[in-house]
């Protein structure tokens, strides 16, 4: 029982960037960049507090690498940012985002599940996500939608476009899942162990893509065990800092 939730999360706030007046000709490089701000996030899952008091600020073009031991809440944090796990407390804001959309609608979530339908062909999978996922193109984010075949070629699975996805190997499925990040541009990438099921060469290629996304003014938040050569990057280490006994999520005394 977590009693008393004084401040329910308002995680659907997107502030228009302060003083951002887009030029009439559409060039908007001088406007304030995107800024993702998390304040005092706390998440409960199954009655257990996973983390509390978590905050960070991430500006466009930067990556945030989340590290920490297994089970400390890295995946939960990413899913909270994706709007899939409700936060018990705290606030998540995207400055400069499109005002009508929530933070999660500015984000791609690249998690453990590939979300690939095995009965559909590779191209059908990707084309569906292109049409279905609403792109988010706030000012200052230069990401463009790529043609499906182009990104599949670049990912090295261009020869499979007309095959049902059931025939893909684990690594190929993973790359197909990655392709959706390019067909519907969104500035925030939330990546949970992005290099799993990828060999060294593919990993290097993925890093190239991620750095490219940063260069276009995107934001990446990734949870990883391996070192990722992302730049510029900040680190967020989730650690167990408070002893179990000093843990304070219940204000009720045993009566």
């Amino acid at each position: 029982m977590n009693s008393g939730r004084p401040s329910p999360l308002r995680n659907t706030r997107c502030l228009p960037s302060s003083g951002a007046h887009p030029n009439k000709d559409g060039t908007n490089q001088r406007s304030a960049p995107l800024k993702l701000i998390a304040e005092h996030l706390a998440v409960d899952r199954g009655g257990r507090r996973v983390f509390a008091g978590l905050g960070f600020t991430l500006t466009a073009g930067h990556a945030l690498v989340i590290t920490g031991a297994n089970g400390v809440g890295k995946s939960t944090l990413l899913r909270t940012l994706a709007g899939l796990v409700p936060a018990g407390e705290g606030r998540l804001t995207l400055e400069g985002g499109e005002p009508e959309r929530s933070v999660a609608e500015h984000a791609h979530y690249f998690g453990h599940d590939s979300a690939v339908k095995r009965a559909l062909t590779v191209l059908e999978n990707l084309e569906f996500l292109r049409e279905f996922t609403a792109p988010a193109r706030p000012q200052g984010f230069a990401g463009k939608a790529l043609a499906s075949r182009e990104i599949l070629d670049r990912l090295g699975i261009g020869h499979t476009v007309n095959l049902p996805a059931a025939y893909l190997s684990a690594g190929q499925t993973r790359r197909l899942a990655l392709a959706r990040l390019f067909v519907s541009p969104r500035p925030i990438w939330l990546m949970d162990e992005p290099t799993s099921a990828l060999d060294t060469a593919s990993e290097a290629q993925l890093l190239g893509f991620m750095n490219g996304h940063l260069a276009e003014g995107g934001l990446i938040i990734t949870a990883t065990h391996s070192r990722l050569a992302l730049s510029p990057a900040a680190a967020l280490h989730l650690s167990a800092a408070v002893a179990p006994d000093a843990h304070e999520d219940t204000e009720e005394e045993p009566a």
């Binding site: 979530y109 979300a115 996922t133």
Partner: peptide, 13 residues
């Protein structure tokens, strides 16, 4: 089961 529901929820539709 295959993670599509996450994308559906985030799709902005």
């Amino acid at each position: 089961d295959d993670g599509s529901l996450d994308l559906v929820l985030m799709a902005g539709r």
